[in-house]
Design a protein around this nucleic acid. Structure first.
Lengths: 119, 119
DNA sequence: CCGGATCCTCTGCGATACTG
DNA sequence: CAGTATCGCAGAGGATCCGG
């Protein structure tokens, strides 16, 4: 076991605070696309600095793509899940199932559809 | 979305540095049980403070159980996976599969059996 | 206005040394 | 052997500012 370990490398990345929740927010949109401000409003606790850092990291890892529309005003930046990113949401689903199975009685989370995360 | 979100709560916990790797190390033992020093030696980069903190957290969340044998010397502490903790390893397996599918060419990780993490 | 960048503070992790 | 004590630093949080 060392830092070349596959599991280590992935956890060192997706385990960072807010990363999974950002992916989840983008996934929850109708077309797997969301604007910076929409993500920000969906996760009020996140600070703009951390959000932009995470978005850059996700883009670097090819989990999301960024497209900028400078022609209209105000400028709009849209972030979309790649196939890789979308595939990762299956793991997030497994995590949710595991949590509901073992952990909890989360009154905000009714069987399948979470009141908060809508996932 | 807020801090009651099921996914948030779980990620906020298992996303902490080293947590998943500690579970993985205990799982790799023959009887799902490992001593403090064995875990420490398997993950040389972890510091004793962080390891003991993580072990306490995992115990609190009922992912592992701790048993102390004070009768012999030196004292031996054994950490074992609970059913809940063992079930979580299925998610870790999914994470590994996802990484190998999308990310990669990890020369340390050959198809199924990783040279480093043996998982 | 939107999408950040900047500045500051504070928590968490790493490194080393030491103890019941 | 299985941890704690102490210190230092990088990264997260909070508030504010800024270019297009």
């Amino acid at each position: 076991m060392n830092k070349n370990c596959t599991v280590y490398k992935t956890m060192d990345f997706v385990g960072k605070k807010w990363t999974v929740l950002i992916l989840l927010e983008i996934f929850k949109s109708k077309d797997n696309t969301k604007r910076y401000s929409e993500i920000k409003n969906s996760i009020p606790e996140i600070t703009p600095k951390v959000l932009s850092t995470r978005l850059k990291e996700l883009e670097e890892k090819e989990m999301i793509t960024k497209s900028i529309d400078t022609k209209e005003f105000p400028i709009s930046c849209e972030y979309s899940l790649t196939d890789q990113g979308e595939d990762f949401l299956k793991i997030v689903q497994k995590i949710k199932e595991w949590t509901l199975k073992w952990n909890i009685k989360n009154p905000h989370c009714e069987s399948e559809k979470c009141k908060d995360c809508k996932f």
